[in-house]
């Protein structure tokens, strides 16, 4: 006997993400979910991003890794509260889920935060499937990786709202075809803004920081 069910498998996650989103809206907090493959420079970009924003913008960070507190230790030096989530307690999960974010929120005074940055676990596959209640999703790729990353991981590049192409200071030393990478992004997500940056030299950071500040201003306006 066939029985209809028709349920989204990720219903439970989506319901908690919705709850998180409502809370962020009520508090006027702009939330970005930053995703990339391991080694693309997520933590370095976030260190530099915080140094540009703090103290003008009140920031907080949730960092997801399978193990260690190395990234949180680095980010904590930027004068923003940081919570490290180690997913080894959740079976070594390769992504952050909405309920993990929900439980991390109790560590912050949400009335004092303008921008919450979530540094997801380094992985271009799984985090793309899990809504955590964020406003914008940002993907980072670096010129030390393949130009075809966007077409190899299409869901990630499709669900994101902005991309950062990092380590551009290395371009003179590599055979990387930057235009091919940008064309690949454009096939999957034609209108997505792409910021070409170097976390080492901070080249290209002004446009990225301005984009973030504009998003934070918009969120504040919506909350009023």
């Amino acid at each position: 006997m066939e029985v209809k069910i028709i349920r989204k498998v990720l219903d439970v996650n989506d319901a908690i993400a919705h709850k998180n989103r409502n809370l962020f809206k009520e508090k006027g907090i702009f939330v970005i979910n930053v995703m990339s493959s391991p080694g693309s420079g997520k933590t370095s970009i976030l260190e530099k991003t915080l140094s540009h924003l703090v103290p003008e913008v009140s920031c907080a960070v949730i960092v997801g890794d399978i193990s260690t507190t190395n990234d949180a230790d680095r980010l904590a030096k930027q004068n923003a509260p940081v919570v490290q989530i180690n997913t080894d307690g959740f079976g070594g999960d390769c992504h952050l889920t909405a309920h993990v974010i929900e439980s991390a929120l109790s560590s912050f005074d949400l009335d004092k935060i303008d921008l919450l940055i979530v540094e997801n676990v380094g992985n271009l596959v799984c985090p793309a499937e899990f809504d955590i209640g964020e406003d914008k999703r940002v993907v980072i790729l670096s010129v030390a990786e393949g130009e075809d990353k966007p077409v190899k991981y299409p869901l990630m590049f499709r669900v994101c709202d902005a991309a950062l192409l990092n380590k551009i200071d290395l371009l003179p030393y590599l055979d990387y075809d930057k235009n091919a990478a940008l064309e690949n992004i454009s096939k999957i997500h034609p209108d997505m803004p792409v910021f070409e940056v170097s976390a080492k030299t901070q080249e290209g950071f002004s446009k990225w920081i301005e984009w973030l500040k504009e998003c934070i201003r918009e969120k504040k306006k919506q909350g009023k």
Binding site: M1, E2, I5, K8, V9
Partner: peptide, 13 residues
Amino acid sequence: GRELDIHSMEVEE
């Protein structure tokens, strides 16, 4: 193309 849905189940009569 983005579905991840349970559609139905079949149970023993």
